[in-house]
């Protein structure tokens, strides 16, 4: 270890920091901080991904509901319903509308399956027709006017703009994202505080050695280098342990999420970008620990003559 340190940092270890009892506990505290930070980061990125996914799914789409006719039965079909044709013709006449496609019966059945099961009886219920409309958001579209026009053609037709309900959902998701980021910040702050106090304790324990080095002409940077090299190692060790714990948690969570077969739940599958960010956590932990230790030692050294 000593040789590796000398090789990596070109400097010997004059202050025996690795002999402190604090040096044995600190990596585990940092590991816990990195673990919590990794989970917060996972929550932030997952929610952010979900928002992006929702936006991508419904951005530029509308759903038009056409109520069932009074005499409609098992024989109803998209092709034979004249009301549908009239509605689609109006929709397609709008410059902002790119396409208007009725949802086929089998897709309707799939949508209703969680509530009604997979039997054929869904066709016997008076279900509305759904028309999937793709719009170009760059072009103006007066939805109120269009709604009135459709309602006068077929009474009871409604337009659902997904942006309306999505907006509320996004506000909620963003608030979760902000809370997760806040937790990430607080965990980092707590980690830095622990490192600062631990470094101060180490400085006091080894004050005699520090003063001896100082009297021999060691610069503040040389002495701080002893502490920061040690802190980097501690931060890296703690970071790797914390990352290991976070990866196990993620794998377990991904496994259980895959077992839930529900279209109501958003899918949980961590992206490669998340794994890439997590991979940098030990390095980030090492660098933050190193700079916190350096700043603390430099400030303490400033008190020496």
């Amino acid at each position: 270890m000593h040789m590796v340190r000398t090789f990596l940092f070109g400097r010997r270890y004059d202050v025996p920091l690795d002999q402190d009892s604090g040096s044995k506990v600190l990596p585990w505290i940092i590991a816990l901080m990195v673990y919590l930070a990794s989970l917060s980061l996972t929550a932030t990125m997952t929610v952010s991904g979900l928002i992006g996914q929702w936006n991508a799914d419904v951005a530029g789409t509308l759903t038009v509901q056409v109520p069932p006719a009074h005499n409609e039965g098992r024989e109803r079909s998209i092709e034979t319903d004249p009301r549908l044709k009239r509605i689609i013709a109006i929709l397609q006449a709008q410059p902002a509308i790119q396409s208007a496609t009725p949802l086929p019966q089998d897709q309707m059945d799939a949508l209703m399956a969680p509530w009604l099961g997979t039997g054929d009886f869904s066709r016997e219920l008076p279900m509305p027709w759904l028309i999937d409309v793709e719009i170009d958001r760059t072009q103006p579209l007066d939805l109120d006017n269009l709604g009135m026009q459709l309602d006068s053609t077929v009474p009871g037709v409604t337009i659902e703009d997904h942006q309306v309900w999505l907006k509320d959902l996004i506000v909620f998701a963003r608030s979760i994202e902000v809370i997760a980021l806040l937790i990430l910040f607080l965990v980092t702050l707590a980690g830095v505080t622990v490192v600062v106090f631990s470094t101060r304790a180490g400085f006091d324990i080894h004050r005699n050695v520090v003063e001896a080095l100082h009297m021999m002409g060691a610069t503040d940077a040389y002495i701080a280098g002893q502490f920061q090299t040690h802190a980097f190692g501690v931060g890296l060790r703690g970071g790797l342990i914390g990352l290991g714990m976070a990866l196990v948690t993620l794998l377990v969570a991904t496994y259980f999420a895959a077992q839930i077969n529900s279209t109501l739940m958003p899918s949980f599958s961590p992206s490669w970008l998340l794994y890439l960010c997590l991979a940098f956590m030990p390095l980030a932990s090492a660098v933050i620990t190193m700079y916190a230790a350096r700043a603390t030692v430099m400030r303490n050294l400033n008190a020496l003559p």
Binding site: H214, M215, M216, G217, A218, T219, D220, P305
Partner: peptide
């Protein structure tokens, strides 16, 4: 910052 150099001469 000049003091360490002086100390090294002592």
């Amino acid at each position: 910052q000049d003091l360490p150099a002086l100390r090294r001469r002592i």
